[in-house]
Amino acid sequence: MPTIKTEYLGELRTEATHVQSGTAIITDAPTDNQGRGEAFSPTDLVAASLGSCMITIMGIAARRDGIDLKGSDMEITKGMSADAPRRIVRIEVKLGMLTDRELTAEERARLERAAHTCPVALSLHPDITQAITFAWNVSEKV
Rank of each mutant, 00 (worst) to 15 (best):
D28W: 11
Q34E: 15
H116Y: 12
T23H: 15
T117H: 15
S72Q: 08
A115R: 03
L69A: 03
R13A: 07
G51F: 00
I91M: 10
R13Y: 07
T43V: 15
I25M: 15
E92A: 06
I55K: 00
T3H: 14
Q20Y: 11
A24L: 04
V142S: 00
Q34W: 15
N33F: 15
S123P: 13
T133Y: 07
I91T: 00
F40M: 06
T104K: 09
P119R: 11
Y8N: 12
D28K: 11
R90T: 12
G66E: 10
G96L: 04
R90W: 12
A16P: 00
L111T: 00
Q20C: 01
Y8R: 07
G66K: 11
I4G: 03
M80E: 05
G37V: 01
L45M: 15
I26N: 02
R63C: 01
A29S: 15
D73I: 05
T129I: 13
G71T: 04
L95K: 03
R64D: 09
D28G: 06
P42A: 14
F134A: 02
D83S: 04
G22N: 11
Y8P: 01
D100L: 09
E106N: 11
G96R: 06
A135R: 09
A84Q: 11
P2N: 07
A131E: 10
M97Q: 07
K70M: 08
G22P: 12
L103W: 13
H125V: 05
